[in-house]
Amino acid sequence: MKLKMNRRSVLKTLVSSAVSAAFLRPGGNASAHDFSGYETNRGVLVDLSRCIGCRSCEAACNREQGLPAPHIAFDDQSVFEQEHSRRPDQNAYTVVNKYDSLLWEHPLFRKIQCNHCLEPACLTACFVNAYTKTPEGAVVYNADVCVGCRTCMIACPFSIPAFRYDSAFSPRIMKCIFCYDTRLSKGRPPACVEACPMEALTFGNRQELLSIARKRMRREPHRYVDYIYGEHEAGGTSWLYISPVPFAKAGFDMEVPKQPILNFVKDFLAMVPMVLTIWPGLFAGIFLLCRRRGSVAGTGESQESKISGEIIDESHGE
């Protein structure tokens, strides 16, 4: 008797756990909704007030990633006059632009690279899963599965991914990967940070960087506007910026949504299972309704000719 009870209870447990594993998935799913990013997410704090536009970071990135030589040398400052508002492209993962502002004692320079979003738009838009967000915070790209649809370029709110259009046989997306392979995965800061002579770039845990940024702003309030770009942009980014002038004056796009880009497509994605489940029954039902009307009305005549006869009468009546 005792044995039987035991066996039954074991079975019960087995069945109930199997059911809950299959349908309820306790824990896993619930935490996915609340996931607020990896605790190990590293980042970089960029202090615009410290940057002097020496382009050491551009040179270091070019070396580290083995990118093609630039057509204007990295020590040539004339690039700022020749090409206003550059963007990262197939030859450069990071670029520095110059912004003249009357509000600050010297011209401002802004380094642009992938911001390594906490919820990357490129990743959520990719239909072959070519992007990965690593626990260290980097958003890396796998060229082996990429199809070249360029939806990631559409989706990125910072317009970072670039496409190698000039290659016929091995085109690919080119974008900053936070030096993941060579440095970040080994706990080291990316090449650009190490190369910065002005300590304008600070590498560290994203949470710590946020408090460093606040500390600087508190200590020298005249030196910074009260805003951390990247704290909330696109749901939060690993790279954070503080600036002595309003961010719009230094070329930042202030229209970037303050929530993950994924949120804008959720409405549609939620509708998909509805259509998949409701449409078959609905339209099969309409089919049956239409057929029933035909066969009841049909007396002797074939169903189809009866219907077409009806319709023709109707259209003549108009």
Binding site: C126, F127, V128, N129, V145, V147, R150, P171, L269
Partner: peptide, 20 residues
């Protein structure tokens, strides 16, 4: 970009949460 990989989303690598 890589038309010869058109079938990748079906058979090689899946990003089922993407609209595309």
């Amino acid at each position: 970009g890589m038309p010869w990989r058109l079938h990748y989303a079906m058979f090689v690598s899946f990003g089922p949460a993407a609209v595309l």
